[in-house]
Nucleic acid binder design. Sequence first.
DNA 1: CGTACACTTGAGAAATTTCAAATATAGTGG
DNA 2: CCACTATATTTGAAATTTCTCAAGTGTACG
Lengths: 252, 252
Amino acid sequence: MPLSTADRSVLEPAIRRLSALRPLSAEARSSLEYSMLEGLQRAGSGEDLITEGDRVDGVRILLSGWLGRYKTLDDGRRQIVNFVFPGESCDAHAYLLSEMDHSIVALTPVVYAEIKRTRFESLLANNPTLSEAFWCETLLNNAIQREWAINLGRRVALERVAHLFCEIFERLRPVGLVDGHSCLMPVTQMDLADATGLSVVHLNRTLQELRAAKLIVLRERTLTIPDLDALKNAALYSPSYLGIYRATEAVR
Amino acid sequence: MPLSTADRSVLEPAIRRLSALRPLSAEARSSLEYSMLEGLQRAGSGEDLITEGDRVDGVRILLSGWLGRYKTLDDGRRQIVNFVFPGESCDAHAYLLSEMDHSIVALTPVVYAEIKRTRFESLLANNPTLSEAFWCETLLNNAIQREWAINLGRRVALERVAHLFCEIFERLRPVGLVDGHSCLMPVTQMDLADATGLSVVHLNRTLQELRAAKLIVLRERTLTIPDLDALKNAALYSPSYLGIYRATEAVR
DNA sequence: CGTACACTTGAGAAATTTCAAATATAGTGG
DNA sequence: CCACTATATTTGAAATTTCTCAAGTGTACG
């Protein structure tokens, strides 16, 4: 469903994030803003934005809420293979491949901008700097996906959940969604379980362990990390995969 | 160490694979060949081609042997997050990010072509079709990486190893490295364990299970899959993530 | 021939899952 | 606003998977 009344401030996360990846010219920025404002959309929690096997015909840029990229096995097992946070896009360039290899679901109510393929392509053709920013995003995604592999393959439950929380913090920070030591945690424990490859029951117990160790406070849909370094320590966190964000952090 | 005598046939896997991703113009093909022939290199088994934290300054295209992309945790745990097979490139465009987020090791003796950044960039600039092929490769890598996430997060040991073998088959096929029902399996069980997130001991037992079920034959560094569909079944394999290869398969 | 490395086996320990049920919490219609 | 219902979180206990440790057997290579 299209949004009618929209002021430009809803676009802020997208602009902020792309600028963090590559400095955008004023011109690139304004034509992007124009294209986004034309395609504002909402989706409700639980709604699939796109399903494995679909063909893609454009790009969506998330403006608020959380999305989950997921894959399922025939017997229903589900793995969230990545989150999409405000400012991040999904499917940029995906039309270069034949079809979607995964699905994307709204884990919360979301607002996003949809830009059709032809529009998007001309936007990139006219703004090399923008094109580079989107490609950078693809590369960054790749790096994040690799980190998820070691997270799922080699970290034990506690480290794994701790690591996810660290990553969420670092990815929300550049778009201004970390407030002091806290951020919103709007998803269910089931979602977190599917993202960490754990059962809900064990995820729940792991959260309690993290709470008992005073590494996190999690209540009323808010995650607080009193001491991020301590949590990173528990997670065996290594920062190199989000390297491109580091400049951003310094600027804060 | 540079290779001296080199005939053009060593380049075949690379040309074959890129052509599978995007049809290459004769011109693109020959300038790529020329650039590759100039930068032929070898590395011995166990040698790191590049290490996490390094800056990248070019692209390498693997011509023979297997590479492993891996990450490690401080206490030594290692996860191979992906393999690189002949014809695949590593680090294409990686110089757009600040530094390597992972390391790449030669799991066998390898031959590869190295193209320096400036050379590579002008190659892409002059051959849009080539540029698209390389970007396609990046997107495909992304899809593979997502599949690894569900493999590590949601498949049990037997399914996981079975799935890895199916994937290896499907990725080796387009470059002509599958011979009937067999392909080379030149890596150690330790490497396979690190790729599937299992301990060596458990990987070994899982292989025995697969053998007992007649799903694989594995001896003398050769993997035979008598009935690929049966193995895919056991792996809960879903083909959508290697979709772009499907045209290739049909052509065979 | 020896030494290092790769593979295999056994057995107990640990992590994680499953099943089942109890308690919260949130959303909905009256 | 409340009662009702569905969903989300939490708890207990047993079953299962996977890991660790330790040792034995092969195999390749100098």
